[in-house]
Design a protein around this nucleic acid. Structure first.
Lengths: 214, 214, 214, 214
DNA sequence: CATGAATGAGTGTTCATTCAT
DNA sequence: AATGAATGAACACTCATTCAT
């Protein structure tokens, strides 16, 4: 699965190289956000990054590799922010802790739906299921750590919860923030508060729920 | 928003026409499932549907209109299946009722992730936010009806719950069924049972959870 | 040159047939006037004529044949109007006679430039130079008759004049009426008067001019 | 009217670019001459120019822009040749001066009718009436200058004459050279002499004619 | 005869990728 | 290394023509 043609062409050592590399990824992200996959073409990306197509192909062997690098960057940022939030979360207040976690996730959520859905789709299309799984596993591990330090989930299945909870957070946030985006008259802030409240309710409900009698 | 260039070109009255129309939508769905947006081109769709490009353009004014018709069909099927499930659900057993609802959703869930993510992305890209909102509202209305007949949600905010619950169901199902898809050795059946259990726990937990002291 | 594939497919005897035939030619003329050669396609023509493409192909073996029929009709109308004007023209007042001739030409001039230029171009493109020449000859013959009855051109070369004069009339009218069309604020009537005056001056000047000393 | 989608995409600075640009315009002109608007397609043009379609679209944003550039080039050449002829024309011999002017016009006349009529039609179809008017005005200005230096037109309306005369020249030349083209057996030279003679007669007649009594 | 759905070659345009400079 | 002109396969869409009904 680790197709060699999808790995970055060179590891940029010099600052100048690194800058171009970053500019390309940022430009790609911006275009994906504004225009979606339809506007995502190498010429446009290079132009927006202030370089040339030729340079783009110095850093990425092809378009898919660029896409993957972009996905990687997004995932890494997400994991980093999650880890920071978990570090910063209070040990004794699950409600507050969940809220902090949520605020970390929100930065990467479908606040801009074109980017998120594009990444989703490309993840599914490209032959990199195992890489994506690894990100998922890292998120799940972070979540486990979170549960442990909050003493949540006394009797429950940690493994499952560590998968289900991030998914819930992401999905509910996506839904409510997308709604916020549509009705621009509404105070986004108000909608965000609702979103947060719903997520807290869902997560805490899930964690604390004991099935009826089963 | 009701852009005329996106509405179907002619409403097929005769059986033959209807058949071609359906074949095109089905072919489009298949291609999206197998190859994603990258393989989604009008020539391929027509070929797979067993017709010609010309015919495709007799039924749809352009590619986006075809995409929209496809989205419409998926949404409608989903709503129809949800409605049927709600009708069939027992009135006095929330747990069982939720399971029936879930099994309706599962048919349309990310059992095939390329199709679902493609639809997500195109929904976001096309200028049809209001149409999508209408589908969402119908789903939400169905959900409200479900709560009412199960006497769930005594004191909670019906409006919010009717939005959040379908999102939760969909997302959790997507995640666990996608995992099932990846590790094909695993018994899909087992994974589905896990998925179902997780969703039940999440939904019931969300509905029954009373915030700590607030 | 009289390519059989360009001659009309059947001579419509019945009234109904004749009506459809005419409707098609009229629709074709209208489309050529409004949209030029770019909008000139068989489907659009049939639709505007209120019939089906199938019927169009009953009357004309192909698109070029339709175009030729259209050209033929325009030429015939022009010749008929010229002949009528010449009949009606006074025998003893060249100036007045020329004005009457002009008013006949004007009905077919580039008052609508898209039609005229389209016909020009198709005349040149299609392998029907001899047919076009025949029309030209008929126009020229009419012109000769005109000169004879007005006793213009005592000593001049009748043959040449009968060619040159219609061309002059057509071209000058086209130019000034096109100008009128552009500046819509101007009274078209005023511009038409200018056009007429210019043509009279040109024609009479040409007819009466005796080269310096050669 | 200065529709940005019709203006050239980049102004070629380097010699290589300029060469390609010119080759494209020349190829387009040739195709228009040989096959008319029907054969005027971007792939054929690029092929004949010895480049690729992609390159064509680097220089022209679309087909219409290429057409316009071609029109522009033809008009400019015509104006340049007219200006040169006027400079070279004798000041004291109107007959000779007119002949020189004619020989300038002849190079651009309907020596090849498909090109000329195609340009006519596209001028009328494209939304560039004001640009075309500007060319017309420049031609008219040149003509005025011609009249002035030849002391023609003592009492007449300069403005009108400066419009009518070029039109007459062009039209009469077109007619007679087209005739020459058709009957290829005839000595073209002979026909050209006739054409020239007719134009001289028409122009001088027009300029010198004094209406009967008005 | 009339209809209009069906066909598919053809056309305008884009864009990933290469390579001479 | 960086550039951006060049390439041409691929794609969206059109339209002349046919033919089953």
């Amino acid at each position: 699965m680790s197709n060699p043609s999808l790995s970055p062409r060179k590891s940029p050592r010099q600052a100048r190289s690194q800058a171009t590399h970053d500019a390309l990824l940022q430009a790609a992200t911006q275009i994906l956000s504004c225009e979606g996959l339809k506007g995502f073409n190498t010429n446009a990306i290079a132009a927006r990054a202030g370089t040339s197509v030729g340079s783009l192909y110095q850093y990425f062997p092809n378009k898919d590799a660029l896409m993957l690098a972009l996905i990687h960057r997004q995932k890494m940022r997400m994991l980093r922010d999650m880890a920071e939030a978990i570090d910063a979360a209070p040990r004794d207040d699950l409600d507050a802790a969940v809220r902090i976690l949520i605020r970390a996730v929100i930065k990467h959520s479908r606040e801009d739906g074109l980017l998120a859905s594009a990444i989703d789709h490309e993840e599914a299309r490209l032959p990199v299921g195992d890489v994506i799984d690894a990100y998922l596993q890292q998120g799940s591990d972070l979540c486990l750590q979170f549960f442990r330090q909050c003493q949540a989930l006394e009797g429950a299945d940690h493994y499952r919860a560590a998968r289900t909870v991030p998914v819930m957070i992401q999905a509910i946030m996506d839904h409510w923030t997308a709604s916020a985006g549509l009705k621009e008259g509404d105070a986004d802030a108000g909608m965000l508060a609702v979103a947060e409240q719903e997520v807290v309710q869902a997560v805490l409900g899930y964690l604390r729920h004991r099935p009826d009698a089963a």
